[in-house]
Design a protein around this nucleic acid. Structure first.
Lengths: 328, 328
DNA sequence: TACATCGACGTTAACGTTAACGTTAACGTC
DNA sequence: GACGTTAACGTTAACGTTAACGTCGATGTA
């Protein structure tokens, strides 16, 4: 591979002059610069990033650590991160932890060794100590999941408001027994949405029956199964903690000839692609996934480039998407 | 950031001894090795990858250039690439070209400058010359899309067989006028599947009416619109070039009270997540997306590590997935 | 004339690491 | 006792690039 030295030799100048030509310094005459650049092109010269990293002490690389790239939510978020970084000339190192703590740890080590300029992390562990060896080593921001006491900026969606919005909407349509299929108790997103559920009821003066608040693994199958349970409990609507669950509910209704929304209102959360495609389109909460990625990248690059990096907390607002599954 | 020198000083040894301790050389006594490693841990030493790259002439990084990470097909493929690379200690640089030729070119330049050890590319341009400056610079493989005369290994799914399989299946169920909603004429995948469509008809001795072979942009909306056109042309089944199109067709049928599969058979291609979730689950062709990524990574790493890199052509076989939308 | 200024370049050292080779002490061998 | 062997280190140079400083002729300036 041709190096700066080869160019220098071919042009009868020092390597420093070549360096100046490449990096657009003004301490070089226009003619030599053009002569050198032409030679670079001719000889197929490509700057060696490793050598640059070493002396410049930066890599123009950002690490992204996510639980699952095949998940639409993270995929869209990654797209937002990627497109934002591309504009600024940064590269993206994708680390798919597969929801495995060991993988996450290894990836974080990998990234710090690579000296990436910063890390965007969707943490899957719960305690500060889990991320102790990251702090003060590489600038990083946490997205979506909030690790208590972790001294890092946070970028997330407002799950509380989202939950409150959609439940308020359902209550306003007259539903009075809204069953909920939630995630497990560790999920902060689920818990926040539940809080929104409860507050919406309080505001509207509607009593809450805890017996129709169910936990699940938030899968399509769980939605299908628990729909039956909830319908037995005489609910008049079901709120799925995400769209996948809600679609499971709708599938059950279709099979059992329960008409949505006439016999049962259904709502989800996330606004995944299939929500709009379903025969009875799903009323749901839209989360700005791409913007979430962009915001994370924005905050991170800000911290990288500014000395006085105040830790930030950016909460994006979700939007109610009214379709057919709850009536209108 | 603490370097090998700091460790050396702290341990009263030379930097080379530290290097040996870190890299597991056997030219070092067990005691010194342990003493050094303990110090590394204590001082929080992290090897500088850039420095290593420079002297070892490799980066343990692989570039992945894809059209759209938010597309399920590519997302799953990326997951396959990622998990395979992770096992072997390689990192992944994700480049989302957004189906933009300029972006793709810039990304390829970026990757070669970073001296990634290899590139996995889903090309979006059609001509060899478009990728001329990549050949003989970095090992790379092309996936999914085949660029004619490009001297690189290819890993893809067998679209011809997939198309033939599903059409044969439909014909065997008795359908005789199978309308098709294809992509544009540049799409090799679409063309191959069409070839399968035609051959299946020939084999079964069923005449083809070219009037019911339609081009489209392969979107949900196109599926919805063209379903009406085809039904007017008295088809008894519709084959969508992908599941999204097919779901558009199903949505039209639902709205117009056309019973699937009783009044109309519907089939798709890809086996995306929503295909199984639909009220009437979609009969389709399953493409091994994760395995595609794994295969691409396997072939690439093979070429990187073996001198005598014979270019390969790996074609994965798709599988028919029979659900309800065509009867059984 | 003497001296400062400036443009355009070269020289040197450094970034952190490892390969290749050199060194040394301890031990064995005849 | 002379020499070889080996284990366990150290030294040096190199990877490709750039920051910092030096040089040198040309041009202005009093």
């Amino acid at each position: 591979m041709v190096s700066i030295k080869d160019i220098a030799a071919a042009c009868n100048v020092s390597t420093m002059t070549v360096s100046r030509a490449i990096n657009g310094s003004d301490e070089i005459s226009r003619e030599t610069k053009e002569r050198i650049l032409k030679m670079c092109d001719k000889m197929g010269y490509r700057p060696n990033a490793a050598a640059r990293n070493l002396v410049l002490n930066k890599t123009d690389m950002i690490g992204l650590v996510i639980p699952d790239i095949a998940n639409q939510y993270y995929a869209y978020m990654s797209k937002g991160v990627s497109s934002y970084l591309e504009k600024l000339g940064y590269g993206l190192v994708l680390c798919n932890s597969d929801r495995n703590a060991d993988n996450e740890r290894r990836y974080l080590d990998f990234l710090t060794q690579r000296r990436v300029d910063g890390i965007i992390l969707i943490p899957i562990r719960y305690h500060v100590e889990d991320y102790a060896n990251l702090v003060n080593v590489t600038p990083f921001v946490q997205v979506d999941n909030y690790v208590l006491d972790l001294n890092a900026s946070y970028i997330g969606n407002d799950n509380y408001i989202g939950g409150r919005k959609i439940i308020t909407h359902m209550l306003s349509l007259g539903y009075r027994r809204i069953g909920a299929i939630l995630s497990n108790k560790n999920s902060t997103a689920s818990n926040e949405r539940l809080k929104g559920y409860l507050d919406a009821h309080r505001e509207q003066g509607v009593a809450v029956d805890e017996d129709i608040l169910l936990r699940s693994n938030a899968t399509f199958e769980d939605g299908y199964k628990l729909a039956e349970v909830l319908i037995d409990k005489k609910v008049d609507a079901i709120f799925g903690i995400n769209d996948t669950v809600a679609l499971g509910v709708m599938k059950y209704c279709y099979n059992r000839r329960v008409k949505v929304p006439r016999d049962l209102g259904v709502a989800g959360y996330d606004d995944i692609e299939q929500a709009a495609m379903f025969p009875v389109p799903l009323t749901t909460v839209h989360q700005p996934k791409i913007r979430l990625g962009e915001a994370a990248a924005t905050v991170l690059l800000n911290e990288i480039n500014n000395e006085n990096h105040q830790k930030q907390k950016v909460i994006l607002q979700p939007e109610l998407v009214v379709r057919k599954s709850c009536g209108e």
